[in-house]
Design a protein around this nucleic acid. Structure first.
Lengths: 251, 251
DNA sequence: ATGTCTTTGTGAACGCGTGCACAAAGATGG
DNA sequence: CCATCTTTGTGCACGCGTTCACAAAGACAT
């Protein structure tokens, strides 16, 4: 997947491992699809296939939530949907602000996956005065002057940053100061936040780079000889460290 | 972070752990910033801070690539940029197609982070005939009829799927059949692909759900009593499994 | 009621990733 | 040339996550 874990060092919250929490939305999505097809029960094997994971892993994940299955039968779909939703906190209403209404911000505002999961876009915020008042996804964009007021008035605790990299940290600081305690960051920067604030990041180009790495390997090491200009090595003579191209090392 | 690992069971490619590969783009970004400020060398401590990781982890990561540092001094910025770029395969040109030019697809097409890393948007593809010919980010959208031809003519091996969930698997199948071997999937679906094809997924709503989970915990378990309608438990009487709300279990 | 069959829930083993802590390496100054 | 000081590279131990494999539990048929 594209996103990575972030700063929290695998803290297991009330006994539920981080890795499990990260998979719960996956199960929930698969279960919702089954629910819409009015499937009453599902076995761990079937559900695991639908979610793209191992069935043993799925059973262990569910075991952290409690004993919600029936042996010999499987899991009750509706019941499980409710339990996971509750565990994830999706039975609550989560107002969210999106800061930075460029192409990505607009795409996020229009994204249907939020509303269907209890997330409500409370406000769109942008630093460009020309954007102010212009409706995006049916919601008028507000100027960033209003940021603190918007967050306090709506009791927002989750913020989405979709600004350019340079603006991200200042925006982040203001969000945190205004009371935001969870941030989803799309800007390609490392955000520094005080303890108690969660940050998750999504970096589109990082994902592509990881794919490129594997793609390069699949293409075979043989064809890797591009004779382009090569920066000089620092100083000392370098021995090619296993698999390096000798020409890269000008001594 | 937002993305997750995907199907590949932590295969370590030529001795470089997956976890390390996932961090290389992070280091590269930090190094590029230093390079632009003409910083000649950097210590593991400084670079680790800039990348938001532990310095021991960074040194261990680099040790998988080779011995590229100088003790007592640190790492040569330019040299390291080149080595990591080469390791990630970014010294090559990677043509990429984006399928599904909605809000998100358009945002991706406009995203600057791709071009600056050796990725070239070779084509934009959409199923809507009305989109055909319309330029997005300076590139004319082509109809999906042309998909196979585009991929073959341009030697594309990386595809980005930004379609609605329902269209994702058929598109994926066509991409794979046409020769694509790496896919970045933004559609909220599990894609099934043959062996040898890498899939990474980015799911925006999953990230928010994970944040909501932690947010709920931060808010304290005390206030968790929402007395909404609760689906019935399957059949048998259920004992509340440690921390559950008794009222949820109607026997 | 009893037996069979399916499927869950979990104990245990294994492997990967992380972080500590230190020895080796080299730069720098006298 | 030697001493000192900084910073790398890594051996080691620990903990989390994954997977296997199986006993326990319940449904269902007879």
């Amino acid at each position: 997947m594209a996103t990575g874990r972030t700063h929290r060092p695998a803290t297991r919250s009330r006994g539920i491992p981080e890795a499990t929490v990260a998979r719960l939305p996956l199960y929930l999505r698969a279960l919702t699809a089954l629910s819409e097809r009015s499937v009453p029960t599902v076995s761990s094997e079937e559900l695991a296939a639908a979610a793209g994971v191992n069935s043993a892993k799925l059973r262990k994940d569910f075991s952290y939530l409690g004993s919600y299955g029936t042996r010999g039968v499987g899991y009750d779909v509706e019941y499980l949907v409710y339990q996971i939703s509750r565990e994830l906190g999706l039975t609550q209403d989560w107002p969210v602000v999106i800061v930075g209404i460029g192409n990505l911000g607009a795409a996020l505002a229009n994204y249907g996956g939020f509303a269907s999961r209890g997330f409500r876009v409370a406000a769109l915020i942008d630093a460009d005065p020309a954007m102010a008042g212009k409706p995006v996804a049916g919601i008028p964009v507000q100027h960033s002057d209003q940021l603190e007021k918007i967050i306090e008035d709506n009791g927002v605790s989750i913020g989405v940053i979709a600004t350019p990299a340079g603006a991200a940290q200042p925006v982040c600081d203001r969000l945190v100061a205004a009371g935001i305690t969870s941030i989803l960051n799309f800007a390609p920067t490392v955000l520094s936040v005080p303890d108690g604030v969660d940050v998750r990041k999504v970096d589109l180009s990082i994902e592509l780079q990881i794919l490129a790495f594997h793609e390069q390997r699949k293409a075979g090491e043989g064809a890797a000889a591009d004779a382009g200009a090569v920066p000089l090595a620092p100083k000392a003579s370098r021995k090619g460290p296993d698999g390096d191209v000798p020409a890269v090392m000008p001594a």
